[in-house]
């Protein structure tokens, strides 16, 4: 079930550099939200905090589904995932990379294989399933990163500049994947980009981020 994320007065600073100052916002469930802003405006920091990889200095975050607010813990962390701008690739096959999230969740081997094969087709990498993932191009690696996140069927998906520094063909493929996810509506997607035309192509829910604050576009 897709999650709603509510930010309450979230702030973050690194030394004296204030990155986020008192952000409050509600990302509604099942929607695709696009965070736009210049490089260094705090988009990635916000995503890392929302993905529970960092703590805010002050303020709080609330994650809720139809059954009410969820406690922060491993169970919640496993319903959330973040795709980093530079995808980390394990030195193993494309198949094993995709299966990682399922393996650590102790999903049975048969189901794991079935879901991975389905995802390989979805991201267009089935012909490279036995190749070492380190040999993929940056665009393919990015698709792998997105597929690896989607195969675990997250309820809240963060995409940090997923199409930065990749070619047009891969950008189109990734945008098509995001649009299909959006259509399905099973996942709340929060994506960052600094490309306004891409933001408009992907969603009407565009949020501008400037000087550590959020505002509607």
């Amino acid at each position: 079930m897709p999650l709603t994320l509510t930010l309450n007065n979230v702030s973050k600073a690194y030394d004296d550099d204030k990155i986020l100052s008192g952000l409050s916002y509600t990302f509604s469930a099942g929607e695709t939200h696009i965070l736009m802003g210049a490089n260094g405006c705090g988009k990635s920091t916000l995503l890392r905090i929302c993905a529970l990889l960092e703590q805010p200095d002050s303020g709080s975050l609330a994650y809720s589904s139809g059954n009410g607010e969820l406690q922060v813990g491993l169970e919640l962390r496993r319903r959330i995932t973040l795709v980093l701008p530079k995808v980390g690739v394990f030195n193993s096959t494309v198949f094993n990379n995709l299966a990682y999230g399922l393996k650590i969740r102790s999903i049975a081997k048969n189901e794991r294989t079935e879901r991975v094969i389905k995802m390989l087709k979805f991201i267009g990498l089935e012909h490279k399933k036995n190749r070492n993932a380190l040999t993929l191009s940056s665009g393919e690696a990015q698709r792998l990163g997105i597929g690896r996140a989607l195969v675990i069927e997250p309820d809240l998906l963060f995409l940090d500049e997923p199409t930065a520094s990749i070619d047009n063909k891969n950008r189109e493929l990734i945008e098509a994947i995001i649009l299909q996810m959006k259509e399905a509506g099973h996942t709340t997607i929060i994506m960052t980009t600094h490309d306004s035309s891409q933001a408009e192509r992907l969603s009407k829910r565009i949020i501008l981020m400037k000087n550590g604050k959020l505002g509607a576009a």
Binding site: A51, L53, L74, R77, R78, I80, T81, L82, V83, L84, K86, V87, G88, F90, N91, Y100, G101, I104, R105, R148, A149, I152
Partner: peptide
């Protein structure tokens, strides 16, 4: 360091993330 971070983003516990690093 991105390997450990990647494992964490995919829901690994601290021990599982350390295992991923050792495997690399």
């Amino acid at each position: 360091p991105i390997i450990r971070l990647t494992a964490q983003t995919l829901g690994a516990t601290p021990f599982q993330a350390a295992k991923a690093v050792v495997h690399e």
